[in-house]
Amino acid sequence: MSAQPVRQPHADRHAGWLELFFDLVFVAFAAQLSHSLHGDPGPRDFAVFLALYFPPWWMWINLTVSANLFEDDSPRRRLLMLSAMFCLAAMAAAVPEADGDAGRAAVYALGYAGTRLVLLGLWWPATRLPAALRVPRWRPLSYCLVSALLWAASAAVPLPWRYAVWAVLLTAEMVLLLTARGHGITGRLHTGHLVERVGLFVIIVLGESVIALVTSTDHAWTAQAGAVATLGFVLLAALWWSYFDFGSTSAELMLGSAEGSRAYLLARDVSGFLHFFVTAAVISMAAGLATAVEEAGHAHLPRGAVWALAGGLALYHLAHACIAVRFGRPLRAVAVWAVPGIAVPLLVVLGAGTLAPWLVVLLLAAEAVGHLLYARTLARRRSR
């Protein structure tokens, strides 16, 4: 059965069972990446984390958009998505030491190449749609097939040149995407479905943070560890509350009110690019929280752990500030909550050598709760 164009944006549509099953592989990805920042990570560890996280995120958003545009539950599509899930699972398994082990790096590259071939299979039926919706054949051939072949060939490139090749290939993919202006089928996104899918991904990374809090108590079953874990849970609960009451709701309203290519461009920038930093920040915080629980009895946290935790929260607020500006919010209004949201965690980083683990998490939790209370107060004023 060939893919069909999506329903009109007002139609009620939610994530399917296949999409939810597919997302489970990113639970493993989040755990692997978070573990890479455990303890006292340095600048190189953070760079490797971002470099290894972007390709699977990029593929997830590409596959999510294809599912958004084409309502197709045929066995063909199911097999393609399950194949992508297997490829991503192989990439997740290769994450540990992928920056130094040639064999793991090769598996990572070949796994990503496989996902590009899956994407080609998903998009190819769109080249046979009516003229108004048809995708030119050169786009999936260059964006998917050529990219897949080059990624597979990169497995034979020696380290560290292989990583330079990956960077060039990812840049080329983004350039191809940026040249698509949202005409034809790419201008028919179902925005509600897309917002829901991105929100479910945020739930995955928040869930990894909760898992990190729970499992870290295995190594530190003390009253201090329990207090730090409790404060960490308050921090995550406040982030969840503010994201789904305000961030996600605002995104659905803004994207839903946009039309044609503007809706596509907003969705591309907010969901595709800026939410990479939102989710990366939460994964980083998961690692920092786990370390804080395990180090609860120490005088202070390692500086790298404070950067993972407090720096992650600062990045989280910065990404949301950029999203608000991209939606057209006045810069002055955004700065009211963004400046303290970024400044407080960075001040915590400055005190990393003197602050006890419980105090670090307490200050960050207080900032997150204060941010939530401010947003709720502002919402009540606007409603009146």
Results as ranks from 00 to 15, higher is better:
G328S: 01
V278H: 10
A292Y: 10
L362Y: 03
V198P: 00
R78V: 06
A227I: 14
L206P: 07
A324D: 14
V65H: 01
T217R: 15
A263R: 01
G16I: 00
V228W: 00
M1F: 09
V228T: 01
F233L: 15
G304Q: 10
V165P: 09
G103L: 14
A287V: 05
V336D: 07
D99G: 13
F327L: 14
S142Q: 14
S284G: 12
R382P: 01
Y163T: 04
T171C: 15
S261A: 13
T249K: 07
R329D: 15
M254C: 13
A106W: 02
L88D: 07
S271C: 13
L79K: 11
L378Q: 15
S250R: 13
C144N: 11
G207L: 06
W57E: 09
L309H: 06
D23L: 01
V234C: 10
H193W: 09
F46C: 05
P43L: 10
F273G: 03
A126W: 05
F246P: 03
W221E: 15
V146K: 05
A98C: 02
H317G: 00
V228S: 05
G272R: 05
F233P: 06
A126V: 07
P160S: 05
W57R: 08
W240T: 05
R77C: 07
V360Q: 06
L52Y: 10
S216D: 05
F327I: 03
S154Q: 05
G370T: 11
R376D: 01
P357A: 09
H14L: 03
W337C: 05
V107T: 12
T354S: 14
R134I: 02
P41G: 00
R134M: 03
D40K: 04
Y53H: 12
W221P: 11
A321H: 06
E367F: 10
G370Q: 09
T354I: 10
F244I: 04
S142A: 14
R188C: 01
F246R: 03
A105M: 07
P330I: 14
E252P: 00
R162P: 09
G114M: 02
I342G: 04
A333I: 00
G199F: 02
R188Y: 03
V306A: 03
L359P: 09
G192E: 02
A356I: 09
A287C: 11
P136W: 11
D101S: 08
I204P: 01
G297F: 08
D72N: 15
Y112P: 07
G192T: 00
Y163N: 08
A379H: 15
A152D: 07
L350W: 12
D23N: 04
F273D: 07
L266M: 04
A51K: 01
A89W: 00
A155G: 05
L200S: 10
T249G: 05
V135H: 08
R262Q: 00
G199Q: 04
N68F: 02
Y316W: 07
H298S: 12
T230W: 06
L235I: 11
R303P: 04
V336T: 12
R197V: 12
F49W: 04
R104D: 06
G341V: 05
S383Q: 13
V336N: 08
